[in-house]
Simulated assay, not measured.
Amino acid sequence: MRTEQSKAYRQGKASDTKLTTYAADTALSKIESELFQYRQAGVHFEGEPKSTAKVTSVHIEATPQKATITECLDTSGWKALQGSKNVTSPNQVRRYTVSGSVRTIGRQWKVVDYDVDKEHAC
């Protein structure tokens, strides 16, 4: 999901990405909402965040199957641009924890929600 999300943020829209293959429900809504806000402000992104993720719990016996993923997201190589001007906040936390909920939809695992925790650097 993160690769397709980054692609959407670079181009300012989710079309021409495979974001819906990997994200659904609240996660997809959050991304679409952020994309809308960035488009309204004329902001796009350059570079690529780095992600280190691990499965922290899994419930395969459930229907749908569910899992929790804990991710360390490093955005130090990712910057917000308004035109060609870097508008990335200099005080912004650049490495932080993201907790994601994933579940099966049909036979596909998708991220259905995530919470960003900028209080816990990783």
Rank of each mutant, 00 (worst) to 15 (best):
residue 75 T to W: 01
residue 62 A to C: 13
residue 17 T to S: 04
residue 13 K to G: 15
residue 53 A to H: 02
residue 99 S to F: 10
residue 121 A to W: 03
residue 109 W to N: 04
residue 60 I to Q: 13
residue 31 I to Y: 00
residue 41 A to D: 08
residue 70 T to C: 09
residue 29 S to A: 09
residue 57 S to M: 03
residue 95 R to M: 04
residue 106 G to T: 05
residue 65 Q to F: 02
residue 58 V to G: 12
residue 61 E to N: 15
residue 3 T to Q: 12
residue 103 R to F: 05
residue 17 T to V: 00
residue 33 S to L: 05
residue 34 E to H: 11
residue 99 S to M: 14
residue 120 H to W: 02
residue 7 K to P: 14
residue 46 E to I: 06
residue 18 K to I: 12
residue 79 K to H: 08
residue 96 Y to A: 06
residue 80 A to Y: 01
residue 121 A to Q: 15
residue 94 R to F: 03
residue 118 K to A: 12
residue 10 R to D: 08
residue 119 E to C: 10
residue 28 L to M: 08
residue 97 T to R: 04
residue 112 V to M: 02
residue 34 E to F: 08
residue 1 M to C: 13
residue 39 R to Q: 12
residue 99 S to A: 15
residue 63 T to A: 09
residue 57 S to T: 07
residue 19 L to P: 07
residue 10 R to Q: 14
residue 77 G to F: 00
residue 80 A to P: 03
residue 82 Q to H: 06
residue 107 R to K: 14
residue 93 V to Q: 05
residue 51 S to I: 15
residue 3 T to G: 15
residue 59 H to L: 15
residue 3 T to A: 15
residue 86 N to Y: 01
residue 106 G to R: 00
residue 103 R to K: 13
residue 97 T to F: 00
residue 69 I to D: 08
residue 23 A to W: 02
residue 89 S to E: 08
residue 119 E to L: 15
residue 105 I to P: 11
residue 70 T to D: 14
residue 46 E to Y: 02
residue 26 T to N: 10
residue 41 A to K: 06
residue 14 A to V: 05
residue 97 T to L: 10
residue 61 E to T: 10
residue 108 Q to D: 10
residue 31 I to D: 05
residue 79 K to E: 09
residue 12 G to C: 03
residue 78 W to L: 09
residue 24 A to C: 03
residue 56 T to A: 12
residue 111 V to F: 06
residue 11 Q to S: 05
residue 90 P to E: 01
residue 41 A to Y: 00
residue 43 V to T: 01
residue 49 P to T: 08
residue 116 V to C: 08
residue 11 Q to P: 06
residue 49 P to I: 07
residue 12 G to T: 02
residue 110 K to P: 04
residue 64 P to K: 01
residue 49 P to L: 09
residue 97 T to Q: 10
residue 69 I to P: 05
residue 121 A to S: 15
residue 70 T to W: 05
residue 104 T to V: 06
residue 14 A to P: 11
residue 31 I to S: 08
residue 60 I to H: 14
residue 69 I to Q: 06
residue 43 V to S: 03
residue 77 G to N: 05
residue 88 T to I: 01
residue 49 P to V: 06
residue 29 S to H: 06
residue 37 Q to H: 11
residue 108 Q to A: 13
residue 41 A to E: 07
residue 45 F to N: 08
residue 83 G to A: 02
residue 24 A to M: 05
residue 85 K to Q: 11
residue 87 V to E: 00
residue 72 C to Q: 04
residue 61 E to K: 11
residue 122 C to R: 01
residue 1 M to W: 09
residue 36 F to T: 13
residue 99 S to K: 14
residue 45 F to S: 08
residue 51 S to Q: 11
residue 91 N to D: 14
residue 94 R to A: 08
residue 104 T to C: 09
residue 120 H to A: 10
residue 15 S to D: 15
residue 39 R to M: 05
residue 104 T to E: 07
residue 114 Y to H: 07
residue 91 N to L: 11
residue 39 R to G: 10
residue 22 Y to P: 03
residue 22 Y to G: 12
residue 63 T to F: 06
residue 17 T to M: 01
residue 91 N to T: 12
residue 121 A to D: 09
residue 24 A to L: 03
residue 82 Q to A: 09
